[in-house]
Every structure is written in C-alpha cells, then in structure tokens.
Design a protein around this nucleic acid. Sequence first.
DNA 1: CTAAAGTATATAACTAGTTATGTAAATATA
DNA 2: TATATTTACATAACTAGTTATATACTTTAG
Lengths: 318, 318
Amino acid sequence: MNTIHNAGKKAIGSRLRLLTAKVTENAAEIYKLYKIDFSPKWFPVFFVLSEEGKKTITQLANEIQHSQPSVTKIVKELATAGLVKLNLETTDKRKNMVSLTKKGEKTAVLLEDQYQDVEIAIENMIEASTHNIWEAIKEWEFLLEQKSLLDRVKELKKIRESKNVQIVPYEAKYKTVFRTLNEEWITSYFEMEEADHKALKNPKEYILDPGGKIFVALYKDEPLGVCALLKIDHSVYDFELAKMAVSPKAQGKNIGYLLGKAIVEAAKNEGASKLYLESNTILKPAIHLYQKLGFKKIIGLPTPYKRCNIQMELEIES
Amino acid sequence: MNTIHNAGKKAIGSRLRLLTAKVTENAAEIYKLYKIDFSPKWFPVFFVLSEEGKKTITQLANEIQHSQPSVTKIVKELATAGLVKLNLETTDKRKNMVSLTKKGEKTAVLLEDQYQDVEIAIENMIEASTHNIWEAIKEWEFLLEQKSLLDRVKELKKIRESKNVQIVPYEAKYKTVFRTLNEEWITSYFEMEEADHKALKNPKEYILDPGGKIFVALYKDEPLGVCALLKIDHSVYDFELAKMAVSPKAQGKNIGYLLGKAIVEAAKNEGASKLYLESNTILKPAIHLYQKLGFKKIIGLPTPYKRCNIQMELEIES
DNA sequence: CTAAAGTATATAACTAGTTATGTAAATATA
DNA sequence: TATATTTACATAACTAGTTATATACTTTAG
C-alpha cells in the first residue's frame, strides 16, 4: 500500500502537494460551515485588502506572490460577488485600483470568528506535534530564498561527480584525445593557428620535453578533459596554463576545475611563483573558471595567438 | 510588502501552496540538469512501478493517492515517452496492467544518481533547520487522518458559540417566543394537536403552575431556543422533557444540548430519578441529541400525541 | 443461466493556478 | 517634441490536477 511513503525525502514535493490539497479541501468546507459565501482562493487577496485598504492588481500580485493574471481573475470573482469595487480613480489610467465594498467589509467582520477558530485549530495541531510545521515552513521559505533547491542539488552533483573524475599524467595513448578535444573547441570558436598545430601534433616535443606537463581527466575511465602546463621563456613567468579542453558531454562535472587545480599544483611543485594564461573573453565559462582558480586579469604582453584578447596571472602561494 | 506573512497560521494553506509550487518548479529544473527527459508529475507512478514491478491503473492510483483519471493520464504520457508498456495480459479484461519497458528500467537506473543528490540536498536543508519539516509533514498527515481540520474547527466553533449562549428561566416576556418557536417546527413536520395549543397558549397555567419549568436560550441576548420540564402524573416518571425548540438560524450552536443539560439539572434538583420524553424518529437530529444527553429508548407507554413514535428515558444519577 | 450489481477504466468537463502575448498608457530618450 | 521603452493589465492558451459520467467487463444472486 505505501510504497510512496517509503520513497524517502526526494518525494517531499509529492508529499507537500498531497498535504496542501488536503488542507485546501478542508478550507472550502470550513467556509461552508460558517455559511459565508466565500472561496478559499479569494483569501489572500481579500485579506490584504481588508488589512491595507486599496491596492492595484500588481501590488496585490506581489504581496500574495501570485501571478498578475491570477489576481485579475480573483478580483473579478470578488467583484461579481459584490465584495470589492474596482477601477477606482487614479491619475494613472493603466492602474486598476481595488478596495472592499461595504458588503466586503461586513464579510471581513463575519470572517473574524472563523479565522479565530481556524487559527486555534491549527495551533492545537502544532502543539500536538513534536515538530512545528509552521516554523518549519518559514525556515524552508528562508532557506530556499538563500539558495534554491536546484542550486543545492547542483553543488552535490558536482561533488559526487568529482569523485568519478581522476586526473592522470599524460601518456602516449592520450595523444589523439589531447589533439581532438582541443581542435574541437578551437575550431568551433576560432581557427587553428600554426602554434596550435605544432603543439597538438607533437605534445612530447613541444610541451613535455621542454619541461612542461600535461594532465588528462578520466571520467569513469574515459578521457574527457585535458590541460597543459607549458614551460615558457619569459622575464616574469616560467609557466603557462594552456590547451585546457573539456568534452561538451562532460560539462558540469567540475572537470575543468579539477584539471586547473592539478596544473596549479604541478607548477607549485616546479617552484613557480606565478602562473600565466591567455584566453578570449567570448569564452565566458572558461574565464569564470580561471577566476575561480584565482587568476586575475593583467595587461599588454605579446602573444603568438590571434585569438587571445585577455591575459591572466595567478600568484602561487608557496 | 509582506501583509500575507502576517496573516497568521490561518494562512497555512496559502503558505503550503507557495512552498509546494517552489519545490515542484525546482524539481522540473533538476530533471533538466540531469539531462533526463522526465516530468516531475511522472515521479510517483514511475517510482512505484520501478519498485514493485507491474500494477493496474487503480492500484497505482491508490498507492500514490491520486485520482484514477490522473494516473490514466500519467501512464499515457509515460507510454508515449516509451517508459512503460500497458495492457499486459490479465485474465480480467477490464484491467490495464502497467509495467516499465527496458527503456524505463534504464531511466530508473539513470535517475538513481539524481535521487541520491536530491535526497542529500533535502537532508542538508532539514539539518540546517531547527524544525524538521519532513517529520512535521508526517505528523500532520497522521493528525489529519485521525481528525480532519474541518472537524477540529467544528469543535472549536461549538465551544466558542456556547459561550455566547445563556440559559435563563422563563419570564412572561418570552411567552410569544416559546409559542412561535414550537409552532414553527411542529407545523413543518406535523400538525398542531390539542395538547400543543393548550400548553403553548398558557405555559404558566399548563406547565409552570403544576410544578414544571421552562428554560430559554439566549444567543447574544436574542431568545432562539426553548425547552420545558413538565411535571407529570405517572407511576414511573415524575417529569417529562418536552417542547424543545431551537430556531433554524441558531442551528449548530450547541443550543439544544445546553437546554437539555439545563432541564436535566432542574429535574435532578427537583429530586427526579428518571426523566421521560416523547418524540418522532423522523426528527433525526433531535433523537441524536437526546441520545447524547443520555436518553435511552423504551417501549409502549400511552401518549396523547399522534406524532409520537418513540419514547425515551434518562436515569438521573444523584 | 440470466439479470442485477459492482468494478476498472477512459473520457469529458471543470478548477486553480501558470506562462505568453497584445494593447493602452506612462515614462524616458534622442 | 516625437519616438522608443517600460509598465499595468486583460486575455488566451496551457498545466496538473480534480469530479462526474459512460462503457465494457466481472461477479453475485435468484
């Protein structure tokens, strides 16, 4: 019978929906009990108007956190029931100012007894429970305001998937992957340049032998990301981060960050105090990643790459 | 901005609705994040099927506490998406047996990571709060199962309204009320009889002077209910409860019960050990009230009233 | 064995919300 | 001051559920 009750907390959405439905259903009955011709869905709009006098449609929508069309509909129904009057004089003719009618105000008074009884009934239920649902709802509203459930799940996804990512040093068998992953992104945004061809065709000769490193990211044992640390001949920088490439199908798995971390660590082990890189501002996720790794923008160094329009450096703490 | 947040606990329905909407909205985004073509509303049905194999439409509806047409729709969508197969052979041709397809089972496996991340995200939120919403929801489900919110409110309404009801002894100024309230209900179900006319026209002579009592129920100072204690000449009974009448507009305010209690109390003060009454079984609320007061059905005493088809007595504890 | 009652499901119509869109009025900008 | 942009709202179309109802099949009772 109760498989769904064993579905665990991931089913909290379904559980909330069912509870909400039950409470709303009861609310409708309660209005009937008090012989007041009133629909539960009118409550938020009606309550705000009775507390605060007149309001425009949009103000009401913001206050009760419904969509504007929803409020438009509710106000229409309330007007038909004779509880509110609308189109009150405003200087701004777009606005539809709404307030309670005499009948509306009378209804508000009639509702007071009911409100009181319902309030007490709910308080009694809360008192009868060990976990306070009212406070819990308020806390969740706050927590979701701070960070959505989506963002929370995103973070956990990243952490979990990082565990499936292994950063390993370059081996000859990764030569093709190193070239194709880089070619993929370069050709989709720019054109391959002479320097690219050289380095990608002969990584050993152009990167490793001069004292550089290459790392490969394995996701569930499949090579889906690469990045190089180049030994460069420069007055300020000894090393450059370059040839970072992550397969589109592995996006969002934190692979770029893990590769970057590995490169920085390698540079540190080589005794570097600064790390240099070149990129292009249209590659927004990449720039964001570099910033996350601690790189800061610098200006005006010569570069062999046409596509480079931004240069960054990272001060390595030793 | 937040009038509605000051509306108090009576707005718990609205708050729950908003929270549910927010969570569901996030759920849809989360499925996208995991690149699984899946709608949140499919979850309960899909989950049950993946846990329990094959089920009929109705079995699914019961398990997930949706209506049967809702499940029919969801199953159709799942079938279109290729995740379930239906109309599996059963001996009973009315039944539509549903189970996951191979693709469905693969999807179930794919969903496992997501489920795990969501589960942890929610657990983290619960841990970050002082009031456990998950346990609170379960408690409310249980409490509402025990007694609906409607019933809880009903009880409180009765208690509150009892406080507005005052039971006072008969005075000459209540003569008209005593007659009209009784005439009202008698004529709407039966016909006035000779004994009625006498007692209602001359309550002093026919009821009070022989040693009886009349009580009047005032609701907010308005006389809306009456009841008489008749002194009778009988081998077993000395007193009879009679001429109980409550205005229809005062129904549900516990007035009948309060009048009855007052009459029983008066009989007790007069030293009565038993109290008698006559009624008719078509007056269901009245019979129910008498039972609530402790009266039990007895048989076969003579009566001057045609409309009497049931007789009851109450043993008064001294 | 047949008629009546009950069950399982599909379908239609409704409900309480949503997003998308068009229009008129107001405000900002060149 | 004319034009572009923004705002307020109504309306239409959609969504995820509901209740009501029709129909085919099964079970029960006579």
